[in-house]
Amino acid sequence: MIVIGECIHIIAKRVREAVDNRDKGFIQGLAKLQVERGAHVLDLNLGPMKKAGPEVMSWVVDAVQEAVDVPLSLDTTNPAAIEAGLKLCQKKAIINSTDATEERLSALMPLAAKYNANIIALSLGKVGLPTTADARIELVAEKILPVAMEQGVPMDNIYLDPLVLTVNGNQDQAPETVNAVRFFKQMTDPPLMTICGLSNVSNSCPAEVRPILNRVYLIIMLGAGLDSAIVDPLDYELMEAVRIIDSRDDSTPKGELYLALYDAYGLSEEFDTSAVDMTDPELREIAKTIDVLQNKTLYAHGYLRL
């Protein structure tokens, strides 16, 4: 799995301050730390950046590239800022992101072609997010891929993002988004790359359940064929889950369960939690989380409690 580190994010107060004060040291420290913990790519999320977009993006890209030697994901809604970043990127960058609307596609696909960048394409149309996996496929096939071809963006450079929604209120979408990833991988031969912003799955959930929701959902998504995800590489348990899956380490009961879950989704099956050893508190929490993410038991903030 390609791990894209999300920590350089303008919504984080300290990142915002560092960017505002041009505090290179802080940004570079955060970049180094994420790479040390296993990030392969760093996402630079600068938000809308309507005014000083190009200047800020240039400064951040330069600062990060001085500190680490990994590709960057340029994450802003301002195309001029993206282009300023692309000009400076030493490694093949990721444009994060376009959706399936004409406006965004026509602004960003030409940049992906011109700078030979990867581009994340959200299956999100003019009227919002389709509720079924099939409708997401349609958006990709009818809106996104034709523009990519027309603009000469190689198919290898497209990263499809089904857009993960929070399980708190959109619980039925959790399995549907997994289906979307599976269908994305089956659409073309060779298959297109897939990606997601993982932590959306636990948006508006309390801090004590967010990490376990994130990592169990990641395993399910990886089983369905997900290639990469924007995640918090400083979340030790999450990175441990990635390690277990990547190295197929079944030496612990947790590892066995993670791999069984991953393999079930690899076979396009759901995972039956009834055989999980519920006397082990760690396994019990994972099993309860699986049931919530499979939309088998209703989500509530306290779902782990009883």
Partner: peptide
């Protein structure tokens, strides 16, 4: 709101 309904039952049972 269905998730809140379940959550309150959990809290009260707890």
């Amino acid at each position: 709101e269905i998730n809140l309904a379940k959550q309150l039952n959990i809290l009260i049972s707890d």
